[in-house]
């Protein structure tokens, strides 16, 4: 297990802008946490199944029945900007 946390790479994956101070502080603090986590390497996990949920429920089926969703006004009430029942965002495609 390596603890070579490349903070710029990871922050980019997380779509999170960090200041230089945050990068330095988080790298040091997470270095401590990852150092602690190193001890997990001691355990023999060969043949052990992974637990995703403590009580896994499989194949949860629901009847495909239409039911009312949120009205448009309610769905848009928390939008930072909206117009004509749509959320306004900066242009994401070039040209026309």
């Amino acid at each position: 297990m390596s603890t070579d946390l490349n903070i710029d790479h990871v922050a980019n994956l997380a779509r999170l802008a960090l200041t230089p101070e945050e990068k330095a502080r988080f790298s040091a603090q997470l270095g401590d946490v990852l150092g602690h986590i190193e001890q997990l390497r001691k355990i023999d996990v060969s043949g052990v199944e992974a637990t995703a949920h403590a009580y896994p429920v499989f194949n949860v089926w629901a009847d495909d029945v239409a039911r009312p969703g949120l009205p448009v006004e309610a769905a848009l009430q928390n939008a930072p900007e909206h117009r004509d029942n749509m959320i306004v965002v900066p242009k994401v495609v070039e040209g026309e």
């Binding site: 297990m1 355990i43 637990t51």
Partner: peptide
């Protein structure tokens, strides 16, 4: 890093349970 951290943690989770 997935296998080394997340998958291993899920396996140890099984042992804890």
């Amino acid at each position: 890093y997935y296998d080394a951290y997340y998958l291993r943690a899920q396996k140890v989770r099984t042992l804890i349970r």
